[in-house]
Simulated assay, not measured.
Amino acid sequence: MGVHIVMDQTGDSRHTFNPADPQAVEEAEKRFKELTGAGFTAAERTGNGEAQVTRAFNKDATETLFFPRLKGG
Rank of each mutant, 00 (worst) to 15 (best):
M1K: 14
G2Q: 09
G2T: 09
V3K: 14
H4Q: 11
H4M: 10
V6K: 04
M7W: 10
M7A: 05
M7I: 14
D8G: 03
Q9W: 07
Q9M: 02
Q9A: 04
Q9I: 01
T10Y: 07
G11D: 03
D12G: 07
S13Y: 03
R14I: 03
R14T: 05
H15E: 09
F17V: 01
F17H: 06
P19I: 13
A20R: 11
D21W: 04
D21E: 08
D21L: 01
D21K: 03
P22G: 01
P22R: 06
A24G: 12
V25K: 02
E26R: 14
E27K: 13
A28G: 01
E29M: 07
K30N: 12
K30I: 06
K30S: 13
R31V: 02
R31E: 15
F32C: 00
F32S: 00
K33F: 01
E34Q: 10
E34D: 09
T36D: 02
A38V: 01
A38P: 11
G39Y: 04
T41E: 09
A42M: 07
A43Y: 06
T46E: 09
N48Y: 13
N48F: 15
N48H: 12
A51T: 06
A51C: 10
V53S: 09
R55M: 11
F57Q: 01
N58I: 03
N58S: 12
N58M: 08
N58W: 08
K59W: 08
D60Q: 15
A61M: 05
A61S: 12
A61V: 00
T62N: 13
T62A: 14
E63Q: 13
T64V: 14
L65I: 14
L65P: 00
F67I: 07
R69L: 13
R69F: 11
L70Q: 15
L70H: 15
G72E: 14
G72K: 15
